[in-house]
Amino acid sequence: MMTPAALIKRAAPVLACIGLLAVWQVASVALKNDSFPTVIEAVRAIPDILGDKESLLNILASLRRMAIGFGVAVLVSIPLGLLMGRSRGVAAFFNPLLMVIYPVPKAALMPIIMLWLGVGDVTKTLVIFLGVSLPVIYHSFEGAKAVEEKMLWSGAAMGLSPAQRLVRIVLPAALPEILTGCRTGLVLALITMITSEMIARQSGAGNILFNALDMGQYDTVFAMIIIVGAMGIFLDALFERARARLVRWSEPQFDMPLSFS
C-alpha cells in the first residue's frame, strides 16, 4: 500500500506530461491557427502513421542508423576518453582536435559528407556517430582523470599491469561519469538522427516529418513530434534503468529523480 505522498512522487512524470499536453491543447484552441493542431487532432494522426507499413519501415530504418551510430561511437569513444584521461601525451594530441570539432554543429558537416559518401545510410550514421562521440569522449576523459592515484597504486601493488589497470580499475571507477556522457549521447543521437534526415531526405522518421510539413499536413507533423518525443522518453528510461543497475555502488542515498525510470 502506497502512501499518498509516494503515489504523487510515482505519478509525477506522467502528471508533467499531461500538464504539457493540456497547455498545448488550450493554446491551440485559443490561437485557432491551421498550422497548430490540437492535441486531439495530432494524437488521432498517430495510428495512421504507425499503421502504415512504409512509415513504420522508415522509422525502423532511423532507429537502426541511430543504434549503429550510437553503438560504434560508444565503443570508440570510451577507450579513447580513458586513454586521454590517463596519458598526458594522448590528451595533448586529441584535446585540441576535439575542441575544434566540439562547437561545430554536426548537421553543418552533412552537406560535405553527403558529397563524399552520398545521401545514404553511411552519411547519416556517420553524423550520428560524430554527434554521440564528443560527449562520451569528454565524460570518459573527465572520469578517467579523476580516478584516485592511490587506487591505481593499490592495483599496481597487487600486480596489475598498466593495461589491466586501465580496464579493471580506471574503467569501473570512471563508469558513473562515462554513463552520464552516454546518456547525453543517447539524446544527441536522437536529435542528429532527425536533423540528418531533414537534410538528406530519403527515408526515416525525419523524412516523414518534413514531408508532412511541406504538404501542410500539420496533424502528421505534430503526431511525428509526439512519436519522436515518446521514443526519446522510452530510450532514456531504458538507459537509466541499465545505468542505475551498473553503478548502484556509487549512487547517493537520496538522488534526484531522473525522467521516467
Partner: peptide
C-alpha cells in the same frame, strides 16, 4: 623499479575499489 606484491601499501585515503 616499480610496485610489486611483496610490498603492500595501506593509504590514509583507503583507496578501496568502490565498485567492489
Amino acid at each position: 623499479t616499480g610496485p610489486g606484491p611483496d610490498r603492500g601499501p595501506v593509504f590514509q585515503e583507503f583507496a578501496l575499489f568502490p565498485w567492489k
